[in-house]
Amino acid sequence: MNVVIIDYDAGNVQSLKFALDKLGVDSILTKDRELISKSDKVIFPGQGAAKNAMNKLHVNDLVDLIPKLKQPVLGICLGMQLLFEKTEEGNVNGLGIIKGYVKKFSEKVKVPQMGWNTLENLESKLFNNINEGEYMYLVHSYYVPIVPETIGISEYDLKYSIAVKKNNFYGVQFHPEKSSFSGNKLLNNFLKL
């Protein structure tokens, strides 16, 4: 199987590569439009600031390409948030694949949310063999509210989407590559889609 990780200087992607290596899958980090289009699976990682990320996607000429992809695509963390129309983080426009706005957690809780939180209301093949109440590792200040595309929920100062799906596009707010055994199961499920 041919897996690409979209390269747009999104922080720590080395761990993602290592996690895929351990699952016996070779992955390449690339910004090449053709390689991305032809691959079997695409991972859209994310870490850092939304504005910077969208700028890099524009510079690398990937903004029109990603929404047209037909194979399974997995957005991780900021990669999931950028599937949406807009984020409050710097008032930046995302890729607009899914309708909705990404919002900031309120001051009632510590921001960023950092650490392990549970999964609830799971409804997708992406969560095969993963139980409600299992823990995933999260680091984020902005969240996706509950939308029709929500396939998993978690709770911090309010209930929010921990995972979404629209057609071939999947997004997870947590970092599967950093979520120990539970995270490995999720990556494995994605590779089997």
């Binding site: 720590n12 850092g48 960023p112 950092m114």
Partner: peptide, 8 residues
Amino acid sequence: SEKYGSQC
């Protein structure tokens, strides 16, 4: 924090 985000 501006380049890599506060989270790191």
